[in-house]
């Protein structure tokens, strides 16, 4: 078995998005966060996650960026 770096990054993106989604859900359930604030924060968090991981790799590969985006989308799908 060969460890795949891109797979790890995808997992990390997914888990990170999931974490943020869970946290935001907690705040939303406590009524500390309105609808608009919730969705805008969700969008901000996901974009920043993608950007952070992509720049962490110091790569300029569009394919890998797509992989990370897919990971984030999976996290979003699961978390929301």
């Amino acid at each position: 078995m060969e460890t795949n770096r891109v797979a790890i990054e995808c997992m990390m993106a997914s888990l990170l998005t999931g974490l943020f989604c869970q946290l935001l859900a907690v705040f939303r359930n406590n009524s500390q966060l309105g609808e608009f604030a919730y969705f805008s924060l969700l969008a901000l968090v996901n974009i920043s996650t993608i950007a952070a991981i992509y720049y962490l790799k110091r790569g300029r590969d569009l394919g890998e960026l797509m992989f990370i985006t897919m990971g984030v989308l999976v996290g979003l799908w699961i978390g929301v």
């Binding site: 770096r5 790890i8 888990l15």
Partner: peptide, 25 residues
């Protein structure tokens, strides 16, 4: 919820460590 949190709590640090250690292409 607890299982989700457990997954995040164990997976995230592990992923970060692996990202730091596994060499890129």
């Amino acid at each position: 919820s607890p299982v989700t949190w457990l997954g995040i709590a164990t997976g995230l640090p592990n992923s970060i460590y692996l990202c730091a250690k596994v060499p890129t292409q």
